[in-house]
Nucleic acid binder design. Structure first.
Length: 400
DNA sequence: CGAGATTCATGTGAAGTATACCTTTAGGCTTAA
DNA sequence: AAGCCTAAAGGTATACTTCACATGAATCTCGTA
């Protein structure tokens, strides 16, 4: 019986392609990191005082997406924690990604998440923020001597909620007696640091590190080394890897993207039942990733956002001239009336459009039409081929 | 003809409102001794 | 009397509204050459 089932599963999974797919997942931390030795050394030496439980300088890392910032930090974090464990040091290093909506896009949520890392049970809402700070300082004071907080995609958080919380965090040190905290900020927006309050800026970036993009050769190395263990032997040709590296090098040396590309290519080949990954898989993967990203983004938007987007879609369909905020609002209004649904104000719809712009569903530019007033000129940023699909999703969600 | 004033349709910021949750607290009920 | 439950009171975050002011170039106005 057992044997039979095994056969069935084997035949079913037809795993010709992957040996260990996790290795291509973007949150995977490999044992050796290629072409980032310099950065690792620097981060490590900046954080070194932590091993004597002295407060390391606050550190600020920036570089474009997929240049290995998170990877390097995680790597150093693991090493430090290992050492700390051996030496029985009371050191705590926590990583928070401010971009994830559930975790860190408000001051409250970031703080709550930090507290959860201490094993506290914090409700989503309800507590005074000040109380969280109090609890936070108490916990640090009691439980640890040195606390390093890694705030990834910190620019996202600051854009949403302002830089006040960073100030508060840096200020906490002066209230602590036995322990201290250090901050590590990670951002892929290089201009971000200049927009901060000067006081925060100087305190947050006591040390700064810039991550340059990988070039095509380095990308190739990274891809090759990972695919060696991720794929089965002979599944992936050098040509595919080269092409993948070339793609990624074009998009500012984004290694994460390259790895995603490789993984999805593999998945496509697997689904095909093929025994090797071809360049055609790669091309398809490229399209699929972009598609999935957009569709996912749209699906997770709230209902009112769907209405607004649908209005934009309608306008785009029979557009004669350029689309402005007012046009969208008027179609949106009609739509709401038809559907007997509560209608938001133009003020709010304007903000929603701005948010669409932020996530890249739409390109909006504030222009002045002279005496015709000031408005946004809006263009849909969804590829032509996806529009029917998007429309379908929206119609389904809105019961049209 | 050209400099300044005017104007339009929204952008944008601040402050207020409604709703959904959350904790704390006081009172009432149950229960065990 | 102690323990437990519940409802009310007092907070907060979030999504949205209201109000008010800011914008920036096409257009108008008017003084001047």
């Amino acid at each position: 019986m057992g044997i039979k089932l095994d056969n069935i599963f084997d035949a079913f999974s037809k795993n010709f392609i992957f040996r260990n797919k996790n290795i291509l997942q973007s949150n995977y931390t490999p044992e050796t990191i290629l072409h980032r030795d310099e950065q690792i050394k620097q981060v490590a030496s900046i954080l070194r005082p932590a091993l004597r439980l002295e407060k390391p300088s606050n550190l600020f890392l920036y570089g474009l997406t997929g240049t290995g910032k998170t990877l390097v930090v995680q790597y150093v974090r693991n090493q430090l924690l290992e050492r700390a464990e051996k030496q029985k040091l009371n050191l705590k290093i926590e990583y928070i990604n401010c971009k994830l909506k559930k975790v860190g896009d408000t001051e409250y949520r970031i703080l709550a998440e930090l507290l959860r890392k201490f094993g506290e049970d914090i409700p989503f809402t309800g507590l005074p923020t000040g109380q969280l700070y109090q609890k936070f300082t108490e916990l640090i004071e009691n439980k640890t001597q040195l606390f390093i907080i890694i705030l990834d995609e910190i620019d996202q958080a600051v854009r949403r909620i302002g830089d006040g919380f960073l100030y508060t965090l840096t200020r906490i040190n002066s209230e602590l007696k036995n322990s201290q905290i250090s901050l590590i900020g990670i951002s892929n927006d290089t201009k971000f640091i200049d927009q901060l309050d000067p006081r925060i800026k100087s305190s947050l970036s006591e040390e700064e590190l810039i991550f340059p993009p990988y070039n095509a050769l380095q990308l190739k190395d990274v891809l090759a080394s990972r695919s060696k263990t991720a794929f089965k032997e002979g599944v992936i040709g050098e040509g595919v890897i080269n092409k993948c590296a070339a793609y990624a090098a074009l998009s500012h040396g984004d290694a994460r993207r390259a790895l995603d590309l490789l993984r999805v290519s593999g998945e496509l080949a697997e689904r095909r039942g093929a025994k090797e990954v071809t360049e055609k898989d790669l091309d398809e993967a490229k399209e699929k990733i972009e598609k999935d990203r957009i569709l996912d983004l749209i699906k997770t938007q709230p209902k009112q956002f769907h209405f607004v987007l649908y209005s934009i879609l309608l306008l785009e369909e029979n557009k004669k001239n350029k689309i402005f905020t007012g046009d969208i609002y008027r179609t949106y209004e009609k739509l709401c009336k038809n559907m007997v649904i509560e209608c938001l104000t133009q003020r709010r719809v304007g903000d929603i459009i701005a948010e669409f712009d932020m996530v890249g569903i739409v390109n909006a530019k504030v222009i002045s039409k002279g005496r015709g007033g000031r408005t946004r000129e809006i263009k849909l940023a969804i590829p032509e081929t996806l529009i029917p699909k998007v429309k379908e999703i929206l119609e389904q969600s809105l019961n049209i």
